[in-house]
Design a protein around this nucleic acid. Structure first.
Lengths: 232, 232
DNA sequence: TCAAAAGATTGATATAAATCAATAGAAATT
DNA sequence: AATTTCTATTGATTTATATCAATCTTTTGA
């Protein structure tokens, strides 16, 4: 795979709306702009590697990436899919300064990397911003609680239904979407084996709940999918 | 069960060290003291109920409690055991103002309930405190990542070994401890059925990894337990 | 002190889901 | 265009684990 990077300083940070950044004042935004790097990653490239030091806040300006943690026996868990407008703060901030997850591009991705110093300075001096960051963290905690329920109480069908709904409603905003996630990726989002994922997708297809053709998925019966998701 | 409550205002907040509260200044501590209630809960009592509004920060001054979320089909997941010095902030803070978990006493528990207003005021005005709260949240996120790996990649033995180590090293600080958690509770911590838990504990006992007698557990081979936990 | 309720234990059975193995198809490389 | 490599699919088998049912033990309440 050919890897190209486009690093420059004429960033268009402000052209993308990041949820939480609206509380920043002129000076803080300028500090962000001065500290930042604009970096483009190609599909498949690693943006952040678990275990390395966390020096940056990663803002996704364009494209899609997966955020995942390394589990046992070379298996991964994909925590979430990142897209335009998302920014990620490592849980290493104020703890061990390490990245606790990896992020890799699943399409070409335009990012803005903001230095951790500019970020922490804004966190310390702007209490409205601090509040938004804590809010963000609380949403993350709520999502992880849901994942725990998914993983421990639902069976495959429920977990996979949940993943399809997530992709449709939270990521692609359409009942009819094309994904660049591989079957293994969708399995890693659902905590099932690749083979089981394929079988369940086939089942859903044969029951006319979804139509699936390669990486194109269409949800035919949203209600059924939600039911399967709810009862597990 | 007889339920008695002892509510008064002569709190000894400062007699217990809460990790994070050392960054509070005189005024903030006074605001905490003025807003708070000292409440004693009996074993089995609900301290916080998932779904209700979160009005307080709960500080555990004495005793043990379990923090759990409601899953499917009346099943619960115990996220953690709380003990002296712990305080808990609901992920509802700055989001939906709801409690996203329940907390119930597993021994008699002395608590300090601090009003959410005093807490948020300190968060907003004291950036060192805000930093510690975010730090705490980041630790919580890291713990949840580990739980996800436990629940999705480890088998029963690994998950149960992990729970025993957790109780020994993080909660009771001894290789030889008495717990007030029921078998169902230990199962809910490990995401296994009660029957499976009992069978695995029996296995561990017969392999001389632990000695178990009622609610008294002694770890004989810490190394073996860690190995089982690590490989899953 | 006894009865009843709740919690713990054991065994038998059912089932969900992973693993293994083989093949097919798509994409990348020569 | 041919070959290799990676990804996707299908079927057969094994395994882990839940569920069900029965019994035993402990705790609680009358």
């Amino acid at each position: 795979m050919s890897i190209t990077r486009d690093i420059s300083n004429d960033c268009s940070l402000c052209h993308v709306k990041f949820n939480g950044f609206e509380t920043l004042n002129e000076d803080e935004l300028n500090a962000f702009k001065e500290s930042h790097c604009k970096v483009v990653y190609q599909k498949g490239e690693t943006i952040t590697k678990e275990g390395t030091r966390c020096n940056n806040i990663i803002c996704i300006k364009k494209g899609y990436a997966k955020l995942f943690i390394k589990g046992l026996e070379k298996k991964n868990i994909i925590i979430k899919v990142l897209k335009e407008g998302d920014f990620i703060v490592s849980p290493g901030l104020f703890t061990d300064d390490l990245n606790h997850f990896s992020v890799s591009a699943i399409t070409e991705v335009d990012t803005c990397l903001i230095s951790i110093e500019a970020f922490t300075s804004a966190f310390r001096n702007n209490n409205r911003f601090a509040e938004q960051i804590l809010q963000l963290n609380h949403h993350i905690t709520q999502d992880l609680y849901n994942q725990l329920i998914n993983f421990s109480h639902k069976k495959m069908t429920g977990r996979i239904a949940s993943t399809i709904i997530y992709l449709s409603e939270k990521i692609y905003n359409s009942k009819n979407f094309h994904t660049t996630l591989s079957r293994q990726d969708i399995a890693d989002l659902s905590s099932v084996s690749k083979e089981s994922l394929i079988r369940v997708l086939k089942d859903f297809k044969e029951s006319n709940i979804i139509a699936i053709n390669g990486n194109h998925i269409e949800i035919n019966s949203s209600k059924t999918l939600h039911d399967i998701c709810r009862v597990g």
